[in-house]
Amino acid sequence: MRTTIASALLVLALSAPTALAGGPRSAAQSQVQFGIEVAQRGLWKEALYRWEKAVELDPTYPAAYNNLAVAYEHEGMFEKARKAYDKAIELDPKNASIRQNYEYFKEINDRASRRTPR
């Protein structure tokens, strides 16, 4: 697993100069892409870190917020996930994938926070 991360980091490092040359969106895209790679390998904490970086680099990048929200969900951080989804929808209101993710999230979040008065 360590070798996988090392290899992936190498790929990221190799692509970094190009990304930086392309401005904040390009740099953020590299972080998002790397985050996806590690998330697919089950390394969600690393993915979370990458997507947090991505929104720092480009706070107008809806995909980064969407992915960040998914990572927060995975970690059980529902309030942060909701805020990230809200931001993603605000930035790209017509994106069906973000809306679909958000609908699934709301279902789980409602269930988690569901309480009735005594």
Binding site: Q29, A39, P62, A63, N66, E73, I98, N101
Partner: peptide, 10 residues
């Protein structure tokens, strides 16, 4: 743990 799927974007 609730199992589901999500869509990651680029």
């Amino acid at each position: 743990k609730i199992r589901g799927t999500r869509v990651l974007l680029k």
